[in-house]
């Protein structure tokens, strides 16, 4: 059985009347990638920052590498890598100097050249931090988070604000960390990110864990089915018969969705109604359920709400 590197028990944090984190418990095994998924304000970052020692917890226990210190210790920080949601570095240092600057703060540090190669920052190594693009800055932030060759790495929304290309590039880098055997905890509100990177997913809402498991376990827990999505050739009023089908939902203007475990049967029902009501079905898409659907089913809200 793998070693447990982090164990959180009944962690709580309040801001006035708001329960930002309300009795969270989970553990992470060595070499696992755990994604903490949830909408903005769900308590993901607060939870992670309490674990990182950047916020005080109101109550609960955090066990690092089998030990339960009252406050986070320097020894624990030596073994931990942190990429914050909003990482600000010293603007006038170059990429190389930034890595050396942070490397110098730990007992053990990887070579800056190694990290630059790993994060494909070679062309920018002499550029000042203030001149980097969003994607380059995020790659630097990830590089800085592993500068001490940590046992556990926290990545707080590492791809927020990046374009799809930059996001995929960063995912590759994070997957490399997994290959290296690092334990990684990612907080994100991109379900695709969690699907691609995580071994295990925790879904947060209102400071609580509302679901936990592998991607497949989470999907299975809600439904084993698929979704049929379609548009209509007429926009003035949805036929009543369609509205009566269980799970029917308008997902955007003139775009509808139906959950199903039998695609053929559902399509047949839709076409029958269209024939009877004299309208056409357009742009039919059949897709698998995803984490967005899981969240929708569990909370009745979208992840982006």
């Amino acid at each position: 059985m793998s070693e447990c590197v982090l164990k959180v028990t009944d962690l709580k944090k309040r801001y006035g009347e708001v329960r930002a984190v309300d009795g969270i418990s989970f553990e992470v095994k060595k070499g696992d990638v755990l994604a903490i998924l949830g909408p903005n304000g769900a308590g993901k970052s607060t939870t992670v920052e309490m674990i990182e020692g950047l916020r005080k917890k109101d109550s609960g226990e955090i066990e690092y590498f089998g030990e339960k210190p009252v406050h986070i210790t320097k020894e624990v920080k030596e073994r931990m890598g942190v990429q914050l949601q909003k990482s600000a570095f010293l603007d006038n240092l170059t990429v190389k100097e930034t890595l050396e600057f942070f490397g110098g703060l730990y007992k053990k540090a990887l070579k800056s050249s190694e990290l630059i190669d790993m994060m494909s920052l070679g062309e920018k190594q002499k550029s000042k931090v203030k001149n980097l693009s969003g994607g380059q800055l995020q790659r630097l932030a990830v590089a800085v988070s592993i500068v001490n060759d940590p046992d556990i790495v926290f990545l707080d929304e590492p791809t927020t604000g990046l374009d799809p290309q930059a996001r995929r590039m960063l995912w590759e880098k994070i997957e490399n960390l997994k290959v290296q055997g690092k334990t990684v905890i990612i907080t994100t509100h991109y379900m695709e990110e969690a699907e691609v990177l995580a071994d295990e997913i925790i879904i947060f809402d209102h400071g609580k864990i509302i679901a936990r498991g592998t991607l497949q376990e989470l999907l299975d827990s809600v439904s084993k089915g698929k979704y049929v999505e379609f548009s209509l050739d007429k926009v003035d009023g949805i036929p009543e018969e369609l509205k009566k089908i269980e799970g029917f939902k308008e997902i955007e203007k003139n775009r509808y969705s139906l959950p199903t475990e039998d695609v053929e049967k559902t399509l047949s029902i839709i076409f029958n109604i269209s024939h009877k009501e004299n309208f056409y079905i357009e742009n039919i898409t059949i897709r698998k359920m995803n984490l967005e659907d899981v969240f929708l089913v569990l909370t009745g809200r979208s992840l982006r709400d």
Partner: peptide, 17 residues
């Protein structure tokens, strides 16, 4: 500025007191 920008937070995530 270091506090508002988040530089302090990043530095405090290291073993620096």
């Amino acid at each position: 500025e270091a506090k508002e920008k988040g530089t302090n937070k990043k530095i405090f995530s290291t073993p620096i007191s």
